[in-house]
C-alpha cells in the first residue's frame, strides 16, 4: 500500500518453540486512528515491542515513512517519530514529572524542539500541570497513565502507540484519557490504540485489526469487527 506511515510485513516472532507472531501484516495510514485488539496472549504487546524496537523480530520487515527500520535500535526509532507508552507505567522514579518529560525532549525531540510545545505546555494539555514538581511516587493511577502519555508526547511522535493506557481505570477516567487521545489525533498524530476496553476502542478507532494466537484474523471498521463471527469466536469460544 503506497503512502502508508507504518508497514509491518510478514512479521514473525518466536519465543523458543512458541510462535508469538506468525507472519503478521498491518498497514497504518498517516493520521489514522488505528485499533489493535485480541484476547490475552494474542501477541498485541509483542507486535508493539517489535515495532518500537524493544524486541528484535525473527522475520519480516518493518517500514516507517519509507525507511526500513527492522533492525534499528529502539532509541533511533523514537527519534524518527515512533513513540510508545507502556502498559504498566514505567516512569523515571528519581525525577519529577517535569524532569520525566525533559528526557525525551532532550534525547528524541531535539531537532524538532523548536516547533510545538514545551514540557509545561504538554503537562497543561494533559492535565498534569499542577503535579509538575512531584515525583511519580506521589501520583495516582490515572495520573501515572497521563504521565506515560505526556512523556510520549514530549518525544514529538508522528506515530503514538498507546499500550492499554486505560486498563484498570474507572469509566469517567477512561473518557478522560479518550478525550486526550482524540485531541492528539486532531493535532495530526497517528495513533495505534491497544485496548481491552471495547467501548473505548470501538469509539476511538477508524479501523481495527484483530489478532488471535499470533495471527491476524480480521480487519475492518468497528462495525464490521463487531459483526465478525471469527472475532466473536476468538473472544468467546464456540
Amino acid at each position: 500500500m503506497a503512502g502508508a506511515l507504518l508497514e509491518v510485513d510478514g512479521l514473525t516472532k518466536r519465543f523458543g518453540g512458541f510462535m508469538a507472531l506468525n507472519r503478521v501484516t498491518i498497514h497504518v495510514n498517516p493520521g489514522e486512528r488505528f485499533g489493535l485488539i485480541g484476547p490475552n496472549g494474542s501477541g498485541k504487546t509483542t507486535l508493539i515491542n517489535c515495532v518500537s524496537g524493544s524486541l528484535p523480530a525473527d522475520g519480516g520487515r518493518i517500514v516507517f515513512e519509507g525507511h526500513d527500520i527492522t533492525s534499528m535500535p529502539a532509541h533511533r526509532r523514537t527519534r524518527l517519530g515512533i513513540v510508545r507508552s507502556f502498559q504498566i507505567p514505567k516512569p523515571f522514579r528519581s525525577m519529577t514529572v517535569l524532569e520525566n518529560l525533559g528526557i525525551p525532549l532532550e534525547n528524541a525531540a531535539h531537532g524538532r524542539a523548536a516547533e510545538g510545545a514545551g514540557a509545561m505546555e504538554i503537562l497543561g494539555t494533559i492535565g498534569l500541570a499542577s503535579k509538575a514538581h512531584l515525583r511519580p511516587a506521589g501520583l495516582t493511577q490515572i495520573e501515572m497513565r497521563k504521565l506515560e502519555l505526556a512523556r510520549a508526547m514530549a518525544a514529538r511522535p508522528k506515530l503514538l502507540i498507546s499500550d492499554e493506557a486505560m486498563a484498570g481505570l474507572s469509566s469517567a477516567e477512561v473518557d478522560d484519557i479518550l478525550t486526550i487521545l482524540f485531541r492528539l489525533s486532531a493535532q495530526g498524530i497517528t495513533i495505534i490504540m491497544i485496548e481491552h476496553i471495547m467501548r473505548a476502542v470501538m469509539r476511538f478507532s477508524e479501523r481495527i485489526v484483530v489478532l488471535d494466537a499470533g495471527e491476524r484474523i480480521a480487519e475492518g471498521t468497528p462495525d464490521e469487527i463487531g459483526r465478525n463471527p471469527a472475532v466473536e469466536k476468538a473472544y468467546l469460544g464456540e
Binding site: 529502539a74 516512569p91 525531540a109
Partner: peptide, 13 residues
C-alpha cells in the same frame, strides 16, 4: 538507572 527500557524508548542511546 530508573528504567532502562523506558529510557531507550524515550530516545536515550
Amino acid at each position: 538507572r530508573d528504567n532502562e527500557e523506558a529510557a531507550e524508548c524515550m530516545g536515550v542511546p
